[in-house]
Design a protein around this nucleic acid. Structure first.
Lengths: 114, 114
DNA sequence: GAATTTTGGACAAATAATGTCAATTATTCA
DNA sequence: TGAATAATTGACATTATTTGTCCAAAATTC
């Protein structure tokens, strides 16, 4: 649970730390992701979201398991969405139940349609 | 936590149950929300998301505390987003920490910008 | 079986997200 | 210092996504 990658850090901060640890300029990461430098700068600040392909490339570039990066990414989305809401704890607990519920419902129907 | 409203039910299912309990046609709810009937039908199936104003009107129409409806709504969004991901449990736990982190960061900066 | 209700899809309008570019600011280091 | 490189920022066009309306077809009710 307290994996080094994911604990109390945003995806952007993880990116920046990885990049600086390797002394790479934004340009290099940008080239690897095949986007403009400014996009990477914004990603590191949480102002832009990488897509799945970006995540894969980040994982390979920074030598991190893809799943960990994915968790980092998804939890970012949830966190940014809920950070300004008073009731975020309730939301997370209810969401956990609801996910189970949705899955069981879809298993019953034999189809996945999220 | 296990409030009647929120436990293991989607927002749409809650809407439908409330509506049927009162024997209202979609038309009536639609009028109250000021949208087309088909939108309400889709909301009940989770194919359309109500906005904040809709939530307020739903709360008053079905006589439910607004905050409960809000939790129902937000947890729906999270659940639909994560239901198809393998690692949703990790995501929720990391997200919880991250929310605290984001808040403390923004408190320090003295500004809210989510 | 007529009237009402519900469902679903096509469509246009509104909104949000994405990436490129260029200009400005900051940092590095010779 | 000052030239070169790096980082930040905002404007902009483009693309996706979301939203609601309208309409026609099913389904339900009575």
């Amino acid at each position: 649970m307290d994996k080094t990658v994911n604990s109390r850090r945003t995806l952007g901060e993880w990116m920046r730390q990885c990049r600086e640890a390797r002394q790479l300029p934004l340009r290099k990461v940008a080239a690897h992701l095949d986007v403009d430098t400014s996009i990477v700068a914004k990603m590191e600040k949480g102002q832009r979201h990488p897509n799945r392909i970006h995540l894969q490339r980040l994982a390979e570039l920074f030598d991190e398991p893809f799943d960990d990066v994915l968790v980092l990414y998804l939890s970012d989305r949830v966190a940014y969405e809920l950070a300004s809401e008073r009731c975020s704890d309730d939301v997370l607990r209810v969401a956990e139940e609801k996910i189970k519920y949705l899955r069981s419902k879809n298993v019953k129907q034999g189809e996945l349609e999220f």
